[in-house]
Simulated assay, not measured.
Amino acid sequence: MNTLSSTLWPWMALAGLGAFHGLNPAMGWLFAVALGLHRQSRGLVVLALAPIALGHAVAVGAVLLAVIVFGTVVDATFLGRGAGILLIAWAATHTLAGHRTPLRIGMQTGLAGLALWSFMVASAHGAGFMLIPALLSLCVSPGMGGELTASTSVPISFVALAVHTGVMLAVIGAVSLIVYDQGLAFLRRGWLNMDILWSVALAGGGIFLLAG
């Protein structure tokens, strides 16, 4: 892998995972559509996207922060291996039981409740853990002595979180408005099984970290 591709792939992965999270109904667009249809308001669909993105960003950001904190006191190789095992375990848990324990919230919730719901769903699905391979690739490199330091990792993590959340917000907004305008008949024509793809993505990230 040349220098340019090794520099770009983590950012492309962050953007791709943002799009993937945005496409997943469990991450919030289905709730935004349902809320808009319930109150007959297209504007509410758009307004609901802000707390959904905020809750998701906080959940993901908490994981990235934990990685940085542990990475400054734990060997980067050990951290990567541990994160890989955790990702694979999370994938197995999600495959076996994740979709059987949905988090519920009523249509009368406010924006604060929606943000809290988004945070809980993203945390329960392990959304932040998916970003660990890309984050470690950005923060730990031969040019940095193979070590993870807070002075370089914190700014990179903020940018990574902004890229990921920005792409997710764009995708979730587009999907929400399309489904709202088309009606629920759009969903009856078929939709990908995101549970399976989600588990595969988690396991793939874990295998990448263990093989790296």
Rank of each mutant, 00 (worst) to 15 (best):
A91K: 07
S123G: 09
R81Q: 15
G206I: 01
L131T: 02
A124Q: 07
T149C: 11
F119H: 02
A53E: 14
P142I: 01
N2K: 07
T165A: 12
R42L: 13
S176W: 00
G145A: 07
L23N: 11
G43H: 03
V175T: 15
A15C: 12
M12F: 14
S5N: 11
A19P: 08
P10S: 06
L135G: 02
L35P: 02
L44Y: 04
R189M: 06
F31E: 14
L202A: 04
G18A: 06
W11D: 07
A13E: 08
M12D: 12
V163Q: 02
Q182Y: 04
L114I: 05
L64N: 04
L54W: 15
R81T: 15
G205N: 06
A62K: 10
T101W: 15
D195K: 00
H21Y: 11
A32C: 02
M168D: 06
G36W: 00
G80C: 05
M130D: 04
T7M: 10
V60A: 07
L135D: 04
I132Y: 08
W191I: 13
F70V: 13
G173A: 08
L184F: 15
W9H: 05
I207M: 09
A32D: 06
G22R: 01
L187Y: 06
T152H: 03
L65V: 05
W9R: 04
L17P: 10
G82A: 02
V200Y: 00
Q40T: 13
L14N: 03
S6F: 15
S41Y: 00
L111N: 08
Q182H: 04
F158D: 12
M12C: 10
A15F: 14
A122G: 02
G145V: 07
S176L: 04
A91V: 13
G84R: 01
A89K: 11
I172K: 10
M194C: 01
R104V: 12
R104E: 14
L135K: 01
L210K: 03
L116P: 07
L202W: 01
V163P: 00
A26M: 06
T3L: 08
G36R: 02
W11S: 01
V60Y: 03
M120S: 11
V67D: 05
L192A: 10
T165K: 07
G205D: 12
G43R: 03
M144S: 07
F208Q: 10
V154M: 04
D195I: 01
G22F: 03
V33S: 00
G205K: 03
L86P: 01
A57T: 11
L17R: 08
G190Y: 09
R188M: 12
G55Q: 07
L79H: 00
A48H: 10
